Simulated scan of single mutants.
Amino acid sequence: MMMEDKKWFKQKKYQITLGIVLLLVFGVGGYAFSLYNSFNSALDNIHEPINKTDKRENDISIKKQDPFSVLLLGVDERANDSGRSDTMIVMTVNPKEESVKMLSIPRDTKTEIVGNGTVEKINHAYARGGAEMAIATVENFLDMPIDYYVKVNMEGFKDIIDTLNGVTVVNDMDLTYKNYHFPKGEIELNGKEALIFSRIRYEDPRGDFGRQIRQKQLIQAVLDKGTNLSSLLKIDDILGNLGDNIKTNFTLTEMLNIQKQYKSLNKSIEQIQFEKGNGGKEAGVWYYYPDANELSEIKQTLKSHLLLK
């Protein structure tokens, strides 16, 4: 799900700029000024810096088109609850090759939780120590640096969809969850329905892998809906929801450089998934165990894409 979220940021910012220009052309300068202030306020709320990874010998620069990595965390975070990362997607971006590789990590993967001194499900890392512990754990699991992160509160994600008056997706499998039925084919979803659709797990024989497909569909649907003119009229509300539900260590300058230089990268995304592992229970807890050879191959693929040894 993480290149799509980064695309989300880029496209929203592009829409804001276009919206301001249109408003100025029509002489509504006062509203444009208000919108600009909302934009800056949202960026202040979104930006949450963390310590730089110690797996990099040298600093990287998006402006200079250095390859970089991003960890997308889809977090189920509610009041008085630190939450767990239901979605963990690692993306590597190589601007000079004009390519992106995207890996979804099964949430039940058994691994060391770096900084906590335990071996448990990888999605527990966020609950134990927030974004920084999640990043450190993923870095250890894949033996590679994580340069940036984007955290999305999935509970608040429905507010953004409702602001857009719902989204349309093409469901590839007939699914039912309690009183909710999602038939195969094109379906319309409001915010609550989209959230349930993104969380279905046990009712899908593909488990986590099926859920990852649906989450990607929803992100793409939001991007598609957000590019139409009617959404520009709601951009103030969208910005408010973004600021409340998304955190990232990307700076404004880095986001501007991404928007400027990497517009076509979304057309060349290679999806990578774990396919050879297996699952089992330990003391009543279900874990996913990656295949050692497949994990080694994935590590090498991602590191090579980052031009690392």
Results as ranks from 00 to 15, higher is better:
4 E>Q: 12
5 D>Q: 13
11 Q>L: 03
11 Q>A: 10
14 Y>H: 11
14 Y>A: 15
14 Y>K: 15
16 I>E: 09
16 I>S: 10
17 T>M: 07
19 G>I: 06
20 I>E: 14
21 V>G: 01
21 V>L: 13
23 L>P: 12
24 L>M: 08
25 V>F: 12
25 V>D: 14
27 G>S: 08
27 G>Y: 06
29 G>I: 00
29 G>H: 03
29 G>M: 02
31 Y>V: 07
32 A>F: 02
33 F>E: 11
35 L>P: 01
37 N>A: 10
37 N>S: 07
37 N>T: 04
41 S>Q: 11
42 A>T: 15
47 H>P: 07
48 E>L: 01
49 P>Y: 04
52 K>Q: 13
52 K>R: 05
55 K>M: 13
55 K>A: 13
56 R>P: 11
57 E>Q: 13
58 N>C: 05
59 D>H: 02
60 I>Y: 05
60 I>P: 04
63 K>D: 01
65 Q>M: 11
68 F>S: 01
68 F>E: 03
72 L>H: 07
73 L>Q: 05
74 G>D: 09
76 D>T: 10
76 D>Q: 11
78 R>A: 05
80 N>V: 03
84 R>C: 03
90 V>W: 12
91 M>L: 10
93 V>N: 05
95 P>V: 10
95 P>K: 02
96 K>Y: 12
97 E>T: 09
97 E>L: 15
99 S>F: 08
99 S>W: 03
100 V>N: 06
103 L>R: 01
103 L>D: 07
107 R>I: 04
107 R>G: 07
108 D>R: 08
109 T>R: 15
109 T>M: 09
109 T>K: 11
111 T>D: 01
112 E>T: 12
112 E>H: 03
112 E>F: 06
113 I>M: 06
